[in-house]
Amino acid sequence: MLAKRIIPCLDVRHGKVVKGVNFEGVKDVGDPVACAAEYNRQGADEIVFYDIVASHEGRGTFLDVVRETAKQVFVPLTVGGGISSVADMRETLRAGADKISINSAAVKNPQLISDGAEIFGSQCIVVGIDAKRDGRGGFTVYANGGRIDMHVDLLEWVTEIEQRGAGEICLNSIDTDGVRGGFDLEMLKAVCARVRIPVIASGGAGKLSDFAEVFQETDATAALAASLFHFGELTIPQVKADCRSKGIAMR
């Protein structure tokens, strides 16, 4: 049986993990490679690196982090932030990423999804979405880290993403992100009902039971969290044990 995936996300700025990760045994809490290796040891099913600065100047340092991690960590590695062209995709994959995550660039230029899928294969194209309730019973898509309303209907967008050949969707709800009251079950259900590609739940995890809940209540195949794992409030083994005890398949 296919296991549900637990995915920690590491935000990286200037080659360092933002705010650091509080792990026992990891001396440099800001070292992304050491943090990724620790998540791997804990049983993370995939690891996401997100370049939060995504500046042209910092790109080399960031890709060095990806390159070094890929030499030591042998679970799938997804890389996002600042990828806006086929050339960026190629460079990131060559550095050792298994998947590339595009978000704002895809909303602004949907052809990028098609081009990426065509050239590198659907399996490595993840489209990240930041979405929010539109106040009229629907959801709308935002760009630039949730700052710009693109006036694109979420459900039309996910249909287009699938048709253009993306392999996976990572759905972040702006409404629940940071609130720590659980994943946005309503938004996830709406999206999962629309597409047949895997959907990763993101935004809102605040306690142990939120993970099992998202798998029991929606068809999301993976759940992503950042700060919850970084600050050691919850560990990946704890989350997996809770899910397992509720009958959810875990690696």
């Binding site: 049986m1 296919l2 296991a3 549900k4 995936r5 099913d45 659907s122 399996q123 392999g167 996976e168 047949r196 590609i197 895997p198 068809d219 195949t221 993976a222 398949a249 690696r251």
Partner: peptide, 10 residues
């Protein structure tokens, strides 16, 4: 089932 078959399977 969801396609692609993506993730860890036993």
């Amino acid at each position: 089932v969801i396609i692609p078959h993506m993730g860890w399977n036993e």
